[in-house]
């Protein structure tokens, strides 16, 4: 029998990479294939959220702050799925929170494309 709080401890001792892969797996399993594109109005909200709210930690120019830099060249080195998982599930052990209470998977995918400079 694993005590209820063991899960948290496990999470803390695992490396971020492992956690990310675990989260990724969950996202892949649960995600609907071909999630719908956010509406134009939602895209506007997301663009604002990225600059203003993500920008609070990552810098409004995405050069980093308390959070890592999110410049397009760095983002393009990372896979879409890993980035989507990081947005939705956060990075345990760091201040990066899971955004899935506020953002859908389609929202996260749109943000990843924006971070990579693939949409405007």
């Amino acid at each position: 029998m694993i005590p209820a709080n063991a899960r948290t401890d496990l999470h803390k001792t695992r490396s971020p990479v492992f956690s990310r892969q675990l989260s990724l797996l969950l996202v892949l399993v649960t995600a609907p294939v071909g999630a719908a594109e956010p509406s134009p109005e939602r895209q506007k909200q997301l663009g604002n959220l990225l600059v203003q709210d993500c920008g609070s930690c990552h810098g409004m120019t995405m050069k980093g702050g308390l959070g890592s830099p999110l410049l397009p060249a760095l983002m393009r080195d990372l896979g879409d799925e890993a980035l989507v998982a990081t947005i939705l599930d956060g990075r345990p052990g760091t201040p990066m929170p899971p955004w899935k209470l506020i953002l859908s998977e389609a929202d996260a995918r749109w943000l990843v494309r924006r971070l990579k400079g693939e949409n405007r």
């Binding site: 709080n5 948290t8 709210d53 609070s56 930690c57 308390l66 956060g90 201040p95 929170p97 899971p98 955004w99 209470l101 506020i102």
Partner: peptide, 10 residues
Amino acid sequence: GQEALPVYKM
């Protein structure tokens, strides 16, 4: 604490 919510702003 144990049941903390995600922190969206420090």
